[in-house]
């Protein structure tokens, strides 16, 4: 439908035309990888932008090094919630089976399971599938339902028995049992 008309942008609102492409206005940070672990919501993210560019521009031959850098930053003490979310979103683009152990640990914690799934859901292979199944025993409530959704999305039929058990378990939260039921329907 027609949207309400928005006023034309003023000169000040327009993006600078001098910036030629997505690289042009990136921040110039000495150690952007470490800075990403300290990212805060609402704070300057220009260093994250430069990391994002390196991730996106990496060729297949360079992905392993990029993945290592991201994992190293993710392991830094005091990694913030925003930093962890960003790093996992970047891992979603390049992560391989090498990332699974670090992500598996995050998957088992309800506070970080969602962010870990950003990356794990994208990693092909049995290792990532196993990490998702293993996390079910450590989680409850919404994060557990989220993991079940990722299992269904990956069409992991080996999880059917586990999911059936969850669906029938009266001690599970309704949101979890419903997620299991839907996952089973999705896998059938």
């Amino acid at each position: 439908m027609a949207e309400k008309k928005r006023p034309a942008p003023t000169t000040a609102e327009r993006p600078p035309r001098s910036s030629a492409d997505r690289k042009s206005n990136a921040g110039n940070t000495p150690e952007p990888w470490e800075m990403c672990a300290r990212l805060e919501y609402g704070g300057d993210r220009s260093f994250a932008w430069s990391v994002r560019e390196q991730v996106i521009d990496s060729g297949p031959e360079d992905r392993a090094r990029i993945e290592d850098q991201l994992l190293k930053a993710l392991a830094l003490p005091g990694c913030t919630d925003a930093g962890r979310a960003f790093l996992c979103q970047m891992l979603a683009l390049v992560a391989s089976v090498k990332s699974v152990p670090a992500l598996a640990a995050l998957l088992k914690d309800g506070k970080s399971a969602d962010e870990a799934r950003y990356a794990v859901q994208q990693i092909a292979g049995p290792e990532a599938a196993a990490a998702l199944r293993d996390a079910l025993g450590s989680l409850s409530g919404a994060p557990k339902a989220g993991v079940i959704g990722s299992i269904a999305h990956r069409r992991d039929t080996t999880a059917r028995a586990v999911l059936a058990g969850i669906r029938e378990n009266p001690s599970e939260a309704p949101v979890v049992r419903e997620a299991a039921a839907r996952a089973l329907a999705h896998l059938s």
């Binding site: 794990v120 994208q122 919404a142 079940i148 997620a179």
Partner: peptide
């Protein structure tokens, strides 16, 4: 292009899922 293919979708915040 594996990276481009990964951008076709994304994991949803829990408890939401396409399943």
């Amino acid at each position: 292009d594996d990276m481009a293919n990964r951008l076709r979708g994304r994991a949803m915040r829990s408890p939401w899922s396409l399943a």
